[in-house]
Design a protein around this nucleic acid. Structure first.
Lengths: 167, 167
DNA sequence: CAGTATCCCAAGCGATACTG
DNA sequence: CAGTATCGCTTGGGATACTG
């Protein structure tokens, strides 16, 4: 971040926040994780202004979080869709952690928490610190129980067997 | 966030970002996790302006992330220190996840990654998604290998045996 | 040492309008 | 449908100066 003082500039946390810190970024990412791919869909789901969305999307492409790929639905003209990159998927645990933290500490009473479950075992999934050798859940293995606001992950990345697994 | 459209307002992710989303918040939190407690220390470590720090600290106290507790060192006059609350410690995995993500994808080449290790096993610690029943690392169990920028955790919270463990 | 208050600037957002 | 451009507002940050 340009507003940072000298030696902290290369702190990985600062660098991360420089990319992810802007308000809409993580939300847009969540939509993308949820399968949203097109401009209009992002805009309607989130209700943010078109100009902001345009800029945010462009930045996220520049930052390597989204990839803008052309495709042609049936007989229509060519379109583009924004696909989350592996770099973006690597933020999945962070986003989930944030969401679960919000659920736990910022609940407004009426909304039941979003419960993530592992598809295979059916067990609840949480974001946590674990040792290297622990079995982790890949984004593709994660779904939600009740089904509110955070649906299942439709298109997980190819190689991300487990996010955050051994370096 | 006030800038959010209607129904998304109670999305836990949005609520979380409303509290944590401001740029300095997580950085200040990291310092607090690292044992920094006093105004001057935050200011010198981070190099941010006193006015901003003052506001940020006050907000974080309001938001329940920090607690301002009085204490009296040896024979001096009374002082105050900012202690991270359990609510703040619950963000530890998120912060670590962000930091590791920055290390992995935003490395500037010259800086070696911050390696977190479990004190007991000596194994590397990562932020990840796991099932409910997985053994997790409490903040107090986590230290760093080389010792750059992210030191050991000096004062972990009382009851946080494992962050993110079974709800 | 530990802040608070004031002033100014830059960045981010929304609304609106326009292009292919 | 999928954006880009412009404008004005609001917010967050820095500098400086001041208080206990």
């Amino acid at each position: 971040m340009e507003w940072m003082s000298v030696d902290l500039g290369n702190c990985p946390l600062i660098r991360a926040l420089d990319v992810v810190g802007k308000q809409w970024t993580i939300i847009v990412l969540r939509e993308a994780f949820n399968g949203v791919r097109r401009f209009e869909d992002f805009q309607h789901h989130l209700g943010l202004s078109r100009s902001v969305l345009s800029r945010r999307l462009a930045e996220m492409v520049t930052d390597g979080l989204l990839e803008r790929v052309p495709y042609r639905p049936d007989g229509e003209r060519e379109r583009h869709e924004y696909q989350p990159t592996d770099k973006a998927w690597a933020l999945y645990p962070v986003m989930v952690g944030l969401m679960q933290w919000g659920d736990r500490y910022l609940a407004d009473g009426d909304a039941e928490p979003v419960r993530l479950v592992d598809r295979h075992s059916g067990k609840a999934v949480v974001a946590a610190l674990v040792t290297d050798d622990t079995a982790t859940c890949a984004p593709a293995d994660v779904g939600v129980r009740p089904g509110r606001s955070f649906k299942t992950v439709p298109a997980a990345p190819s190689d991300h067997g487990a996010c955050g697994d051994g370096r």
